[in-house]
């Protein structure tokens, strides 16, 4: 009998995961999206909300990814993607960009992670058996943004080991900062008591999600199915 018999079930797609986090953004929020999966959050556009995108390289209020042929060779986001200028956009140098981050101007930063623990620690910059680390701006953002949201696969894609842990095993990026977490199995809130399962992926029971999780999940009475974009 396989160790993880439930893993054959369909899980959530990355875009659906990021859409769900973006639904939590409030009108007027300043948002910083990490490289990789989190950039998918910018594909969710709610016409009723104004979202201000900030990037570590000093852009406040950039527009969507530039279509082919419309790239400006001087304008990229933190992931190195060419983006469009947007009315109201402003440019600062790198020290001012991080002054902005450290002073708490960023309402939410969305990042990927290797591990998240039930006390809100997370790890995303260093693997112990590899020398050095790729920290970038993640530590500054994690320590200083108003909120940290994480988007990641629920288990390690290589070996299926859990990533929602009691305590992180890898060197952490910041202690106790994660507020919300979306995985391919559901939406979780990090509370003082631990991971609260707010929404489950369609077809997955709380018991099945718990089976893929090291930390003990809190299952609320108002648990609901995962919300997709309209």
């Amino acid at each position: 009998m396989p160790e993880h018999p439930k893993s054959e079930k369909p899980k959530l797609e990355r875009q659906a995961m990021c859409d769900r986090l973006a639904m939590e953004f409030q009108d007027g929020w300043i948002v910083n999206l990490g490289v990789g999966m989190p950039t998918l959050c910018s594909n969710y556009v709610d016409p009723g909300k104004t979202i201000i995108n900030h990037s570590e390289n000093g852009v406040i209020g950039y527009g969507p990814i530039a279509p082919k042929g419309q790239e400006d060779r001087h304008l990229v986001n933190a992931g190195g993607q060419f983006v469009l200028a947007q009315p109201g956009m402003a440019i600062v140098h790198h020290a001012d960009s991080f002054a902005f981050i450290r002073s708490g101007m960023v309402d939410v930063t969305v990042m990927g992670a290797y591990e998240v623990s039930e006390n809100g620690d997370f790890a995303n910059w260093r693997i112990p058996n590899r020398k050095g680390g790729g920290i970038g701006g993640a530590m500054d953002l994690a320590a200083c943004a108003q909120r940290v949201f994480i988007a990641m696969e629920h288990t390690n894609p290589r070996d299926g080991t859990p990533r929602l842990l009691k305590r992180c095993k890898l060197p952490i990026t910041a202690p106790g900062v994660v507020k919300m977490l979306v995985t391919d199995l559901g939406l979780f809130e990090v509370t003082a008591q631990g991971f609260l399962l707010r929404e489950h992926a369609p077809g997955w029971t709380p018991e099945e999600i718990q089976h893929e999780t090291e930390a003990k999940l809190i299952i609320p009475r108002d648990l609901r199915e995962f919300r997709f974009r309209d």
Binding site: S97, R102, I135, G136, A143, C144, A174, G176
Partner: peptide, 30 residues
């Protein structure tokens, strides 16, 4: 390895005549 914002501020401090500074970045990490 220097966190990007700490690197930017360390460079800024050098050009601004600052002897050292306290930052919340990296607290609680290795």
């Amino acid at each position: 390895t220097v966190p990007q914002g700490t690197m930017a501020e360390r460079i800024r401090a050098a050009g601004a005549g600052i002897g050292a500074f306290y930052t919340p970045t990296s607290v609680g990490t290795e």
